[in-house]
Write a protein that binds this DNA or RNA. Structure first.
Length: 510
RNA sequence: ACUCCGUUAGUCAAAUGGCUAAGACGCCUGACUUUCUAUCAGGAAUUAAGGGUUCAAUUCCCUUACGGAGUACCA
């Protein structure tokens, strides 16, 4: 596995890229980079009905925002292009026909309605309709029909699909099982007799996922297929297809699914709406309905935080280290350490990662982001904002938290928190604050240290009790009982403003 | 219903056929003779159940339960 590692992320452009898809892409990326391989993006747009305008661009932008760009893909002029299946349409039919010629596939004329009827009929009897070896001779296809009849139907332009002959009793004799090795799950086996004859080529002239997928993986020399667990049941089909075409199958690795934070099933857009967190990397506007789905980026998450969090959903390094840069992830990543069981999505934990990555950024960087996001700060010196940010950033998770945390650095409080007032404003508070004004005025060199020494000195020498002074003082400056060190706040807003705010609250006290 | 996959605290999860089953998020408590959503210190909480194999099982095997996925001319 040196330089021959080629992996692909192969989404369908049917809407915004789901967070689970991002994780799949991430694991592909990590695996590729770990082995000095190539990460390919292939757009699987074989279903024209489900194509959604803008979805492909969204996928590309999302990967870029996450910092996991592809090496080959649409609009890169690489040797295996094109990378959109719709542009590779001409490639697939010949392989379907090759399979027919080899007796491994056949034409089928059954209409969707008649198959539906069969399914309903079976269901009513408590059985499952499977189109395969046990009934294919009774259905309408090139096995049950004469060659003339088949030719005639095709010549008449009748709709047909091509089905893969999954198990051929005449040639394969026993039913048996098909066994394979999955890089994550180990040995996996399937009973051949229960498998159905899947449609590999549709009546609209397009291949189905299964055919297009293996043809492209083969042609693009994909060495490892890393995809979601929902594909595990298709593995026997894919392996049989590789065999039938005389190709070597790639290695498979099926990733565990990402589950809802609570309740049953896999994570869906609805869970995000209900519980108030995004399930998409970027904001998405539905081109048809105009509905907007929020994105991690717009909600204030840093891509590093999301990537770090996602990496730990279904994988861990086996050490106690949790904070990983992308490079460190590449180094540590190993498919063997990927879990088999589905992982519940925890919106709280990704916040914790975000908080952590916030602390890593410089005050200046954060100040610039803060300033850009808050109209009130337009005329404020960014250096001042930077100092403010430095005082509060350890209690912020998002840039969007800053305003709530710091507005009193920029303008005086216009009201006082009711509960805090009850707690802080007691009998005698007025006198205490009046004395504090005196003390503040007496500090000529207005620094945090000088303020602190003066006021704390006064408190201790008069044996007053810190709470009696500090709480009303904080309330005067902030409007609530929150924020960083009171002396830092006084220093930042300056002597004049400090005095003004204390006078304000004195006049507020009845 | 059938097929496949899975199951360590509320969640993400580590570990080994054998000492008190890591760590993180969250939660609770305390501290910081000034607040807190921060910080620090503590705490509660887990091997799904039942059978085997074994001197010994969370680890290996079986059964049950539960969970997930798939059973489309969707991917």
């Amino acid at each position: 596995m040196s330089n021959n590692v080629r992996v692909r992320f192969a989404p369908s452009p049917t809407g915004p890229l789901h967070i689970g898809g991002v994780r799949t892409a991430l694991f592909n990326y990590l695996f590729a980079k770990k082995h000095n391989g190539t990460f390919v993006l292939r757009i699987e747009d074989t279903d024209q009905n489900r194509y959604v305008e803008g979805a492909e661009d969204y996928i590309v932008e999302s990967l870029n925002w996450c910092g996991i760009p592809f090496d080959e893909g649409p609009n890169t002029n690489e040797q295996f292009s094109p990378y959109r299946q719709s542009e590779r349409k001409h490639l697939y039919k010949q392989y379907a026909e090759e399979l027919i010629a080899k007796g491994k596939a056949y034409y089928a004329f059954d209409t969707a309605e008649s198959l539906d009827a069969h399914r309903k009929d079976h269901e009513a009897k408590g059985k499952t309709f499977i189109y395969n070896w046990h009934n294919r001779e009774k259905l309408t296809n090139s096995i049950s029909l004469s060659k003339e009849e088949v030719d005639k139907r095709i010549a008449n332009g009748e709709d047909y699909v091509i089905r893969f002959k999954m198990l051929d009793l005449k040639n394969q004799g026993s039913h048996g099982t098909i066994r394979t090795r999955d890089l994550i799950r180990g040995s996996v086996s399937f009973k051949m007799e229960l498998l159905d004859d899947k449609v590999i080529f549709k009546s609209d002239g397009m291949p189905t996922y299964h055919l297009a997928n293996i043809v492209d993986d083969h042609l693009m020399k994909i060495s490892h297929v890393i995809r979601g667990e929902e594909w595990l049941p298709s593995v026997p089909l894919h392996i049989a297809l590789y065999h039938a075409l005389g190709w070597q199958a790639p290695e498979f690795a099926h990733l565990p699914l990402i589950l809802k934070p609570t309740g049953k099933g896999k994570l869906s857009k609805r869970d995000g709406d209900k519980l108030g967190f995004p399930v998409f990397p970027l904001e998405w506007t539905d081109p048809k309905t105009g509905d907007i789905s929020r994105g991690y980026k717009e909600d204030g998450y840093f891509p590093e935080a999301m990537v770090n969090f996602l990496a730990f959903l279904g994988w861990n390094p086996g050490t106690e280290q949790e904070i990983f840069s992308l490079d460190e992830l590449v180094n540590a990543f190993d498919l063997e350490r990927v879990h088999k069981a589905g992982a519940r999505f925890d919106p709280e934990k990704i916040k914790w990662f975000n908080h952590h990555y916030m602390q890593d950024q410089s005050n200046d960087d954060l100040a610039n982001q803060f300033k850009a996001s808050q109209p009130e700060l337009e005329s404020i010196d960014v250096n001042y904002i930077s100092l403010v940010v430095g005082l509060v950033k350890e209690r912020a998770t998002f840039i969007g938290d800053f305003w709530n945390l710091t507005h009193y650095f920029f303008s005086a409080p216009t009201s006082y928190d009711e509960k805090a007032s009850k707690k802080a404003l007691k009998e005698g508070t007025k006198d205490v604050l009046e004395k504090v004004i005196e003390l503040v005025n007496s500090v000529d060199d207005f620094t945090t240290d000088n303020l602190q020494n003066t006021i704390k000195g006064w408190i201790t020498s008069n044996d007053i009790g810190f709470g009696k002074v500090m709480m009303p003082l904080r309330l005067a400056l902030v409007g609530a009982l929150q924020g960083p060190d009171v002396f830092d706040i006084m220093f930042m807003i300056g002597k004049k403003e400090t005095v003004k705010r204390i006078e304000n609250i004195i006049s507020f006290i009845p």
